[in-house]
Every structure is written in structure tokens, then in C-alpha cells.
């Protein structure tokens, strides 16, 4: 039985997910186009999109497959890109760890950057949300993004033409992510974490994709906790 608050949480999630459509469509179309050009069949392209459902990792795998890299290397490199999602998973356990197993399975399948970041920002803003409302909110945001990802990828695979590069839609992705970072900078501790994240990620840019970001993430979290502790001590 879904309560009225859970239902409205779902609809709020749908609304909050809508802006991401502009970011996901060009990215997904591009994957469809590039995958077909690389020689994948339509079924294989959609297999990637629907079963793996992780844009950056899909592009990483495709790039290595174009170079005819060893299969083991393709798998390792693409999975490394996704390692950050283990942190998302641990962080989601704080908020929806007590949800029924099938809901946790569903959310794990759907867990990518946009809906994770949007959902956790909401959970922090509204601390008294029930676990069911949190689950419904996450599913609401995902309802917008996940189908758009698949359909746009299919469109790209079928028409075989990406959106012209002159439109520079590539930069919508960083712009969207940065507009998400802005509201996250609530305290000096959050700011410190963000700065450390940028510095370490840039320093480790030559490490295999994904692994540098993972180290940067751990350093940044540590920095956040350290500054938070200082701030508490100053206040005491």
C-alpha cells in the first residue's frame, strides 16, 4: 500500500528528474551512433544500454573494443569507471538500507550519477522523509531518466546520425553536474571536500579511468570529516 506522502514523493521525483532529459538525450544518442559505427549489432547496442546502463563505462568499453584490446582489459577498465558507484551504494544504505530487498535491487540497477545525486540532496534537505518516501522519490527521478536513456540510444542506433558537434551539446553534461555541485556546498567542510576532490582527481588523471577518482573521493571525504571536526571544536 503506497501512502499519499510516498506517492507525492514519487511525483516530486519525476518533476526533479525532468531537467536531466536535456543532458541524457545527446549522450545516449551518441552512444547508439558510435556503437553501431563500431560494428555492434542493434541487439548488442541495446544490450549495453539496457543491461549495463552506465554511460561512461559503456563509452570506455567501446573505445577499448575499437582498439581490439584483450577482453579482460576491456572488462577491468569499464568496471573501474563504475567503482565510484560502490560509494554511492554505501551512502544510499544510510538512507534506504531498511527498504525491502526487491526495492534495493531495483534501485541498485537504476543507480547512476544523476538520480543518486538528486536523491541524496533531497534526503539531506528533508531529513524526516520516511524510507518509503525516499524510495519513491528515487524511483520518480529514475522514471524520467532511465527510459529516456534507452530510447534515445535506440534512436541514435537507428538513425546513425549524432546531433551535430557544432551545437556543442557535449558541454551540457559538465554544466548540469556543476549546477548540482553548487547546492551541495552547504558548509566549509563540504567546500573543503569539493576542493580536495578536484585537486586529487586532476593530479591522478593519468591513472586508469575511475581509479584516480576513487582515491580522490576517499581523500575528499576525509577532508570533509576533518574540517567538520575542526568546526565543531571551534564552536565548543
Amino acid at each position: 500500500m503506497i501512502s499519499a506522502t510516498a506517492k507525492s514523493a514519487y511525483l516530486t521525483g519525476v518533476r526533479d528528474g525532468l531537467p536531466f532529459v536535456f543532458m541524457v538525450i545527446p549522450f545516449a544518442i551518441l552512444f547508439g551512433v558510435v556503437a553501431i559505427e563500431a560494428g555492434l549489432s542493434l541487439a548488442q547496442t541495446m544490450g549495453f544500454t539496457v543491461l549495463v546502463i552506465a554511460g561512461a563505462a559503456q563509452f570506455a568499453a567501446l573505445q577499448l573494443m575499437l582498439d581490439n584490446a584483450a577482453i579482460g582489459f576491456v572488462l577491468l577498465a569499464a568496471l573501474a569507471v563504475n567503482l565510484r558507484m560502490a560509494m554511492y551504494s554505501a551512502s544510499l544504505a544510510l538512507y534506504i538500507g531498511s527498504a525491502p530487498m526487491w526495492q534495493r535491487v531495483l534501485i541498485s540497477y537504476l543507480n547512476f550519477d544523476q538520480n543518486y545525486m538528486t536523491a541524496v540532496a533531497k534526503y539531506e534537505d528533508v531529513p524526516d522523509m520516511t524510507v518509503q518516501a525516499r524510495v519513491q522519490y528515487f524511483l520518480g527521478v529514475s522514471t524520467v531518466i532511465a527510459p529516456v536513456w534507452s530510447v534515445a540510444s535506440l534512436v541514435g542506433a537507428l538513425i546513425g546520425t549524432a546531433i551535430p558537434e557544432a551545437l556543442a551539446l557535449d558541454f551540457i553534461l559538465p554544466i548540469t553536474f556543476l549546477s548540482m555541485v553548487g547546492p551541495m556546498l552547504r558548509t566549509l567542510a563540504h567546500l573543503a571536500a569539493a576542493v580536495v576532490s578536484v585537486v586529487v582527481a586532476l593530479l591522478l588523471i593519468d591513472l586508469p579511468s575511475g581509479s584516480g577518482l576513487l582515491i580522490a573521493g576517499v581523500c575528499a571525504m576525509t577532508a570533509g570529516v576533518i574540517v567538520e571536526t575542526w568546526m565543531k571544536r571551534d564552536r565548543a
Binding site: I107, M180, V181, V198, G217, V225
Partner: peptide
């Protein structure tokens, strides 16, 4: 973690660190 830990308690330090996950990953 979401599947295997669920709502089992985690060490306080880990909990505090995990609160910074979004702002620790996205900027980098």
C-alpha cells in the same frame, strides 16, 4: 553495500565520511 549491509549499523566514522560522498565525487 546497499544490498549486503542494508540497515546494519556502520562505524560512526564511516557514516560521517559517507555523508560527503556526492560532494567528494562529482567535482573530481
Amino acid at each position: 553495500f546497499l544490498g549486503l549491509i542494508g540497515d546494519r549499523p556502520m562505524p560512526p566514522l564511516v557514516l560521517r565520511m559517507l555523508r560527503y560522498t556526492p560532494v567528494a565525487i562529482l567535482p573530481g
